[in-house]
Write a protein that binds this DNA or RNA. Structure first.
Length: 467
DNA sequence: AGTGCAGTTGACTTT
DNA sequence: TAAAGTCAACTGCAC
């Protein structure tokens, strides 16, 4: 495996995208296959092709990936310079390399998204080069319920989302029960480039126009606007990693840098495998294991539970989740992990109450029963906190705590309170506040509208809320 | 009919 | 898309 954030479920998705691209390019070239694939060290592969055929120029998308892709691209740039091969990298998603100030960034993003799509070429000439086979798998993480890759599936999802699923978007995205169908599910297609952000934004804007002009579709206007806003937040976070690549390894704000550095193997594994004794947390983790996807709010809750209630290091937490997300996108991921772990110093701390979320998002317990079969017979009254059941009920419902299902690994109210205290102490000092101010200037968004409660909230840390 | 009071709601603050 | 606490305004009800 190339790096600690990579997993076979991601590779399988990418592989399916490549296979479909291969066939599509083949059609343009009038052959069964159109893609020439090479595996191995990028510089060595390029050098070999250059030796045998001569490379006139390199064209690539400008990737904002992890440190591994960054180092690879640096090596390729270096090689291309040495060999006198022009290397063109095309900026993606409105992200700007070498950005100095966030001023005007939103307008730049708007303009990028308005530019016309590049048309498909009428035909293609494929060089007569041999192609390596695609590796079958890069690990044993099968994830059979994961989304399948390929542009046609991405387009079908885009159509179904904008034509009808978007109606339940605003209402359905918070609960893990409704989110799988209410959310667009386009994220992995955007991550792997099977769909372009620009084509998704443009399709969304057409739907917004339709909803604005046709009363029949007026009801979905809010959802569509919320969706477009999230697409722009997506670029915002990728931009953050582009501008501050250290956030993959170092906390943005040093206030807690020397705290929370040790993994507690028992607590961490219980969280990582969905055995915390909190049914809603465990159901979310197990759904993620099984499907490779979870809605945003529940991702945030899992992260907060690990980093606040269990006080585990954000990077270990982030790596585990990265491997489980089929749609792992480094820029979004590390920005979000740091925010939800309280490492940025420029966002409000969100310490979720996992029992409250359980009641709010899964009132009947249907979601828990689906993913935590140990609790299948426990009625709604006890399912959120089965450890409160009297022993005779535990026996009656076939779920003895500590035997059939674990007891809670921490007392969530106590550990939440402790985390809150530590956070506010760490960020209260004048030095910490000064650093927050600097980070805010450089890496927060510039909203076109004034924040609603600017004066009151400026006192606090929570100026900026992406959601 | 007006008063007292428990309980609710919503805006806002604190952690 | 935090949660919990505070407080004032409001509501429904008993008397």
């Amino acid at each position: 495996m190339a790096s600690a954030d990579a997993s076979n479920r991601q590779w399988r998705f990418a592989r399916e995208c490549l296979q479909e691209l291969d066939r599509a390019l083949g059609r343009l070239a009038g052959r069964p296959r159109g893609l020439i694939l090479r595996t191995g060290d990028a510089v060595r592969v390029l050098e070999q092709i250059h030796q045998t055929h001569g490379i006139a120029a390199l064209w690539a998308h400008q990737e904002v990936g992890n440190d591994w892709t960054f180092q690879r691209d640096r090596a390729v740039r270096c090689w291309a310079r040495e060999r006198g091969v022009p290397f063109h990298e095309i900026p993606q998603d409105g992200v700007i390399r070498g950005l100095q100030s966030r001023e005007g960034w939103r307008d730049h993003w708007d303009a990028e998204m308005r530019r016309p799509l590049v048309p498909e070429p009428p035909e293609l000439q494929v060089a007569p080069l041999p192609s390596d086979p695609l590796p079958e798998s890069v690990g044993d993480d099968a994830c059979p319920l994961a989304q399948r890759g390929g542009r046609s599936r991405g387009l079908a999802l885009l159509r179904s989302f904008l034509s009808h699923r978007v109606r339940s978007y605003a209402r359905g995205l918070s609960s893990p029960l409704t989110a799988p169908s209410a959310c667009s599910r386009l994220s992995p297609y955007l991550t792997y480039g099977a769909l372009s952000l620009r084509e998704v934004v443009q399709a969304t804007r057409r739907a917004i126009e339709q909803a604005s002009s046709d009363p029949k579709f007026a009801g979905r206007l809010r959802s569509l606007q919320a969706f477009e806003a999230r697409l722009s937040w997506r670029s915002h976070f990728v931009q953050r990693l582009e501008s501050l690549p250290s956030i993959e390894f170092e906390p943005m704000h040093p206030a807690l840098a020397n705290d929370r550095t040790q993994v507690d193997p028992a607590l961490f594994e219980a969280w990582a495998q969905g055995r915390t004794g909190y049914p809603f947390v465990d159901a979310c983790m197990r759904m993620l294991h099984a499907t490779g996807w979870l809605n945003f709010r529940m991702r945030a809750m899992l992260t907060a539970f690990a980093c606040y209630h269990l006080w585990q290091p954000w990077r270990a937490v982030g790596l585990h989740l990265a491997r489980l997300f089929v749609d792992y996108e480094p820029g979004i991921h590390w920005s979000q992990i740091q925010m939800q772990a309280g490492c940025t110093g420029i966002s409000a701390f969100r310490i979720y109450n996992v029992v409250k979320q359980s009641h709010d998002q899964d009132p009947t317990g249907a979601f828990i029963r689906r993913w935590v079969p140990e609790l299948a017979r426990v009625p709604a009254a006890w399912i959120h906190e089965p450890y409160r059941m009297p022993p005779e009920l535990q026996r009656q419902y076939g779920c003895v705590i500590g035997v059939d299902y674990p007891a809670p690994i921490v007392a969530h109210e106590l550990t939440a309170r402790a985390a809150r205290q530590k956070l506010f102490e760490a960020y209260r000092t004048p030095e910490a506040k000064a650093i927050s101010e600097q980070l805010l200037q450089r890496h927060s968004s510039r909203s076109r509208r004034e924040p609603r409660h600017a004066p009151a909230r400026a006192q606090q840390l929570g100026l900026f809320d992406p959601s």
